[in-house]
């Protein structure tokens, strides 16, 4: 299988406002030496708690946020080295859908214009061809062409997400970045959108970088999964290996925290792994393992030495005491 995207040591820093009048400007490292590969036609899930750097990593990958260092090899060339004109050409290959189908659609535009806009901007096809493509896409995502002249507020949340998906597909992208695409939707509607995304992936051979905090959703959609904690990938594995044999204590905690129909109050379940507290601040992260304050297995060495990603079976895990 061919590698579509090969991200190497990606690091993103934000310089924050000065604290006080003469204080230094603190630097927040939102993404710290993140590396992953995405093969053509596959979906890589990124999970982790709020603030762990999922969105920033994805945005830096497609150059919507500036990276401090690293490489993003997309179809053989490093996107981070491209000049603006060359990058604009690549934009048609990478598209994006967001969590909030409400705020990401212009409320004053008709949905036909919204879906056509990327083709207009990139001057793809004749006006006739563009119109025809919009109609095809509308059908493809499960909307009716007679709804094309309506405005976004005349659609439900799930339908609006279908519109964003249609818009993202207009340029025939190879990579679709999906940032929490179903988090704002009710479960019944979530299922509709997840089935649609699965169908599009199979039919169009799309690759997904799929961000979600919902492990069930990720298990459903993704072939491979990366778990982020405080800007770093702490575990990465093919889906089954990650869910069935998680190696990192944080992955284990996430899995045991996610509510599940298999755990029943009447049967007196006890959470297998419990962790306390919140993630630490990304400003001045701990010197050793970032998870040390919350980890049930932490030892002295964890405080001093940062664990690196190492292979363990099919998993790659950054922990001194995996398993």
């Amino acid at each position: 299988m061919s590698v579509l995207l090969d991200v190497q040591d990606l690091t993103v820093q934000f310089t924050l406002p000065r604290q006080g009048l003469f204080g230094p400007r603190p630097v927040l490292e939102a993404v710290r030496q993140v590396s992953f590969r995405l093969e053509q036609g596959r979906a890589l899930g990124i999970v982790g708690e709020s603030g762990s750097g999922k969105t920033t990593a994805a945005m830096a990958t497609i150059r919507l946020v500036e990276a401090a260092s690293g490489k993003v090899i997309f179809q053989g060339e490093d996107l981070l080295q491209l000049d603006d004109a060359a990058m604009r050409q690549r934009r048609r290959d990478v598209q994006l859908i967001f969590q909030d189908p409400y705020s990401s659609l212009n409320p004053r535009a008709r949905v036909a214009d919204i879906v056509r806009e990327p083709m207009d901007l990139m001057e793809i096809g004749t006006p006739e061809e563009r119109r025809a493509r919009v109609t095809d896409l509308f059908r493809l995502v499960g909307l009716r062409p007679d709804q094309l002249s309506l405005f976004p507020h005349q659609f439900s949340g799930g339908q609006r997400q279908r519109i964003s998906i249609a818009r993202a597909l207009t340029t025939n992208p190879k990579l679709l970045v999906c940032d929490e695409p179903v988090s704002a939707l009710d479960v019944a509607i979530q299922a509709q959108i997840l089935n649609l995304l699965a169908r599009l992936k199979a039919e169009l051979g799309l690759s997904y970088l799929f961000i979600s905090h919902d492990l069930g959703v990720v298990r459903h959609v993704c072939d491979d999964v990366a778990v982020m904690y405080l800007g770093k990938i702490v575990e990465m594995a093919p889906r089954e290996a990650l869910f069935d044999t998680p190696q990192h204590p944080y992955t284990q905690a996430l899995l045991s925290a996610a509510p599940s129909l298999a755990r029943r109050k009447s049967r007196g379940y006890v959470r297998p792994v419990k962790i306390s507290g919140d993630p630490p601040s990304p400003i001045n992260p701990p010197k050793g393992c970032a998870f040390v304050e919350r980890c049930p297995k932490a030892q002295d060495i964890c405080r001093r030495v940062q664990p690196l990603l190492e292979s363990r079976g099919q998993n790659r895990v950054a922990c001194h005491f995996p398993g």
Binding site: A188, Q192, D214, R219, L255, L261
Partner: peptide, 23 residues
């Protein structure tokens, strides 16, 4: 029945989710 079967469960992947159509 729909609410229960449309949840993407942790225990399985890939199979098509049962949908509740409409809103």
């Amino acid at each position: 029945r729909g609410l229960i079967s449309c949840i993407p469960a942790l225990g399985k992947g890939d199979t098509e989710l049962r949908e509740i159509p409409g809103v």
